[in-house]
């Protein structure tokens, strides 16, 4: 039975290392930032998830100490990876104003909310107009 758990832990470690490497190779190979963003946020998160699952199983089976730390780290990383990716993409869009011209029209007087802020409703009146333009 120990052999089976040892095999599972080893496979998880190898998968974790492999996916970390895949994420970083993607970071090197892909052509521009918005495609580069794709590789680390998915593959590397999966890679560190594999290492954490291996650690959890290893300490539960071989050291008899089931801890919640790995679950905490996994949950934290899986929650924060999309948020940081979103922030990086948004900052990239703001740094490169020429990307704004390639966007399709929204079909409304309001532009894309990443650049123009929230749409101004009738009730809020004129006061918010310059605020939206400033944003």
């Amino acid at each position: 039975m120990d052999f089976v758990f040892e095999l599972i832990v080893s496979v998880l470690i190898v998968l974790g290392g492999f996916f970390s490497l895949v994420g970083s190779v993607g970071l090197i190979k892909l052509p521009d930032l918005l495609t580069r963003l794709h590789a680390p946020t998915k593959a590397t998160t999966l890679g560190v998830g594999g290492a954490l699952a291996a650690s959890m199983l290893f300490f539960a089976v071989f050291e008899d100490s089931l801890t919640i730390h790995e679950v905490l780290i996994t949950a934290f990383l899986f929650l924060t990876a999309p948020i940081s990716a979103h922030f990086i993409a948004k900052a990239h869009l703001h740094e490169h104003a020429e990307l704004r011209d390639q966007l399709p029209p929204t079909g409304r007087p309001q532009g894309w909310s990443t650049f123009d802020g929230l749409p101004v409703t009738e009730e809020e009146g004129e006061g918010d107009d310059h605020k939206a333009a400033h944003h």
Binding site: V9, L27, T44, V48, I73
Partner: peptide
């Protein structure tokens, strides 16, 4: 990405 990889390295070192 380096921070996430460093976490993986720390976990493997702990094992």
């Amino acid at each position: 990405t380096m921070v996430i990889n460093a976490i993986a390295l720390i976990i493997l070192f702990g094992i």
